[in-house]
Design a protein around this nucleic acid. Structure first.
Lengths: 212, 212, 212, 212
DNA sequence: AATGAATGAGAGTTCATTCAT
DNA sequence: TATGAATGAACTCTCATTCAT
């Protein structure tokens, strides 16, 4: 969605602009975010922003896209998405995941906010697509679980998905809150607290949807 | 928070104004909502709004308060908060609850949006208080459940609360989505679909946090 | 200029309204003065003000008139305008004059402000008339002085008037400033300071325009 | 007090804006002056004014500053402030002074109005400073006069200052009135009338405060 | 391509005045 | 006549977007 001119910029400038934009949108919301401020914080002229994007909305939309892509790259680098068991999925690579939170708190909180509808209809289209992809992936996890016998097969997949997402999202949010409280630099003890929260979550997931 | 002049208005006018405000805020978001439009839809002059409220923000804040109070009155009238079992809590009075959704879709979607942080920091204070009250109530349900022996007592109350809220909120959202899809006038069949969704939810809740 | 309804009010209410108006105009200036505030401070309803006066401007104009009349009454009661020598004019009844300042600082500062053009073109007409009357009176003083031989007769009356007014106005302003500094309750010592200021002024007047 | 953007403008535009502002403030007073009108008369967009000044008040304050500075420059160019006798001070360069009045009637009447308190508390701070500087300068004239023996030394300097200012301000105002009556283009005869007014003033000053 | 000044539509808010009781 | 709620014109200020260099 950015114009050709944006893609021609060197990576550093591109990143500076996107991070400045994301920070401003996250701090102020879309309406109160000022293009001027974004430009200043990125170290470019206000007019330049309009050389790169049609308008503020496009800039926002690309902020969403960019944060997702940036995020994906980091995840992929760390936890290659093998065909995994639902429960293991959360337990494996916890530390790596916390690492991402520590390094990119801004991107993550931005991502959580727009996926949770904070920006209203603005990111609707992208969100639908994201949800579609996410649902699809998690439905596959559930189908696999059923095959493997780790998930009860007396309930509809869609129902199980709701349950799965409800529980994991709530716990994830709580973990993010804790991370923020710890200023994104948790001590070992605090890391342990977060980890055991995830473990309890998995326990409850197993109880609820597992084949007992 | 409204001025004395607002309280002196007759109930009909008060309600017209609040509903016009809520609709506009819900449709457009706080920033894009126009005081002029609210006034027009309520059938009063723009200047009158400022006789009733200090500014747009106060109007919004009172919209939140008003919708909560209005909502509470309806609920209280229908499901008197007896000392109830966690699981029954959802099953009892389902039809009455659907009735509220049917009658007040605007209020409910507004309430859901601000409790889910759509209005950012604007409603923060009220939301914190709402969350505190809600958490307290649900923690009591959980404590009661443990005493009665319907909830496992090997897990911390706070953990169980996260689980409980994660599951119930997700399913509630889904039910709301369905209601909207049904244009808030579900057929008997559609009502059945929604009801069985709730029943499945309770089943999963029991499995997860019940004493098995 | 007030409507008939105003004149029918009892004197106390009339005075309350006029004083509230004068205070507000003096404190805030014409544009920033709020009819609402005047009404409140006078203890009447905002609408009532419009029963008494056509509009805010009329109220202001009458404030000017009222303060002049009120002022005149007080002066007349104290220093009956006999045919007086220019220099004696200031020296006689100094204490009585200070009494007025003490009792009516608001009225006096209001009067000084509008005669000095603080309210721009608003009070122009009244001011012209006031100036005409004042000039006439002082020209008579000067003519008398010439006849009596206490004022030099080699200079035009108009010139002498300018001189006379320039000096007396400046010293009067200074005395008012002092009075304000003394919170309108001067000690005997401070009264003496003010008095000797006036005496010095008379001395200088005599030197400048006297027949030496 | 203007923003950086204003200082970067070319001199012509700066001057157009300041003159448009001064004219509007002078014609309408601060409250009734419309930013829109100022912008139009200066040939810029309304929004531009806000690129140059924080708000209307800043624009006004800078109008005062600008007019003083502009004025100073003109005076300095014409009457270099040598160490001068009080009486000569007025007689020297009369014609040059009339020239300024002819060329800049707007600036001068604006300056006279704000120094005489027409804009109330708005220009208070600047006025205090102006008065301080003016008083200081004139006190020095008086002290010099005493040393030279052209001013009586039996009276306090502050008293003499009051007398001096009272007389000179009154005559100056009268001269300004005449200038206005003459549409700022006096004939030789009218110029003579104004000049002899000043000469009479000096005569009276000498009589009053001179060593006779 | 980069800059930052210029633009003007648009919104919130104020308050003198009117109006209904 | 007294009241105070209702009205809406009018004004300041913002800021996304355009434009000229």
């Amino acid at each position: 969605m950015p114009k050709r001119t944006f893609n021609r910029l060197d990576d550093d400038k591109k990143e500076r602009i996107m991070r400045a934009a994301i920070k401003e949108f996250q701090d102020q919301g879309f309406e109160n975010a000022k293009v001027e401020v974004i430009a200043q914080n990125a170290g470019v002229a206000k007019g330049s922003i309009y050389q790169y994007f049609d308008d503020k909305k496009e800039l926002f939309l690309y902020s969403v896209t960019w944060s997702i892509e940036h995020f994906m790259t980091m995840i992929d680098r760390q936890t290659p998405l093998k065909d995994m068991d639902v429960y293991e999925y959360f337990l494996s690579g916890i530390r790596e995941r916390f690492d991402i939170i520590r390094k990119e708190p801004l991107l993550i909180s931005f991502a959580m906010d727009f996926t949770h509808g904070k920006y209203g209809s603005l990111a609707e289209e992208i969100n639908k697509e994201l949800k579609r992809v996410g649902d699809e992936y998690e439905l596959r996890l559930i189908a696999n679980g059923k095959k493997r016998g780790t998930i009860r097969d007396d309930l509809d997949d869609k129902l199980l998905l709701l349950f799965f997402q409800g529980v994991t999202e709530k716990f994830t949010m709580r973990v993010m809150e804790l991370a923020k409280d710890f200023k994104y630099e948790p001590t070992e003890e605090q890391l342990f607290e977060m980890t055991s929260l995830i473990e309890s979550m998995v326990l409850l997931l197993k109880q609820g949807m597992g084949r007992n």
